[in-house]
Simulated assay, not measured.
Amino acid sequence: MTPFAEVIGDPIAQSKSPAIHRFWLEKLGLPCDYRALEVQGDGLAGYFATRRDEPGWRGCNVTMPHKQQVAPYLDTVSRPASRVGAVNTVYRQGSRLIGENTDGEGFLEPLRPFLDRPHLYRIVRLLGTGGAARAIAAALTEHGFTLVVAGRTEASARALLDAVAPHGAHHACALAHFAEPTNFDFDDREGLFDLVVNATPLGMVGQSPLAFDFSHAPPGSIVYDIVTAPVETLFVRRARESGFATIDGLSMLIGQAAAAFRLFYGVEAPRIHDEELRGMLAR
């Protein structure tokens, strides 16, 4: 049987994971496959029972709406996945099924050159409170960031902080706080690292645009949008036009996929082809 991994979710047709993993498998000449399978919530138990005994199965990525539902069917869940309460990758370790969350690793990847520098203070304005936002919040607190989390309500933002970052001088507010202009006079940002991150689905194809006024972004901020469709969101375009450095959602998508690829196939993804891969995914 050809070794394979797959992505499961409901729906699943929108997933870019098969295109990414098959691209890398082809570049490496590995005789493996990567598939997509629609699995409904009431089918998760049967899915893992079947796959557990399937010799060629290397694991799966887990997308919405199952990231918070798969843990009971696994033998172990990693600390990062436990902390954020979501599993996006399942892989085999001997006879055991391990749940991992690679979102934080993927999110941090394009920020590594900045994180390697010393800063007096690091702060992120994190928009969103879903599973991806939780993984991002957990990853950034590991790197000394103070979090300003904005949710649809202040209560939802506070719930994220209570779950992921209960200690520290973090702040919660509603998304509406950032929608209107501010005349706040930011102090000297020398030695500071400022991030603004959209971890909501707002701005995605079929969704309303994200209402964010860039007067809330300190000078020198990096603006990061994890939305992948479209690759250039209105949020990213407006940030760039306002003079901010930007990172698009393909950076996180490819980074988290590379971490999963390593777990599935035991080799590193051939990242020298990233530009070709990005071009393919952007079409």
Rank of each mutant, 00 (worst) to 15 (best):
V62D: 03
R189P: 13
V124W: 12
G104N: 13
R22I: 10
I123D: 15
I20S: 00
V87F: 02
V39T: 00
V77W: 00
D116K: 11
I226M: 05
T141M: 13
A229G: 06
R283Y: 08
G128R: 13
G9L: 04
L195W: 12
C173S: 15
R158K: 14
I247V: 15
A239L: 09
L115Y: 13
I222M: 12
L111W: 10
A239M: 08
E241D: 12
V87Y: 00
P3I: 04
E232A: 14
F4R: 01
A260Y: 03
I272T: 15
L97E: 00
R134P: 06
G243A: 08
G279A: 14
V148G: 13
V149C: 06
R51A: 00
V39N: 01
S78K: 05
L30M: 07
R112A: 14
E105A: 15
L250S: 02
Y121V: 13
G130C: 04
R35M: 10
H171A: 12
P219M: 10
F244Q: 11
V84P: 04
I123C: 15
D33N: 11
A260P: 09
T246L: 11
F178S: 08
V148W: 14
A81Q: 12
N198S: 10
F193Y: 11
V196I: 08
R152W: 03
V77S: 01
P201S: 01
V90R: 00
P72Q: 07
R240C: 11
D103C: 06
H273I: 04
M1Q: 13
E38K: 04
G56K: 06
I226S: 01
L126P: 05
I136P: 05
Q207E: 15
A86K: 02
L74M: 05
N101S: 09
R240P: 14
L195Q: 07
E54H: 12
P218E: 08
C173V: 09
I12L: 09
R278Y: 09
A259W: 03
K67T: 02
G99F: 02
P218L: 08
A139Q: 12
N61M: 05
A49L: 11
G59V: 00
A155H: 15
A282L: 05
E241R: 14
A71N: 09
P110C: 14
V7R: 03
G151L: 07
M64E: 03
C173L: 13
G191I: 02
A19M: 12
A258C: 07
M252T: 01
E154L: 02
E100M: 04
L120V: 11
E54S: 13
G144M: 11
Q69N: 08
L120W: 14
V7N: 03
A45D: 09
L25P: 09
G203T: 03
L253V: 02
A132D: 04
Y224P: 07
G104Q: 10
P166M: 11
G249H: 04
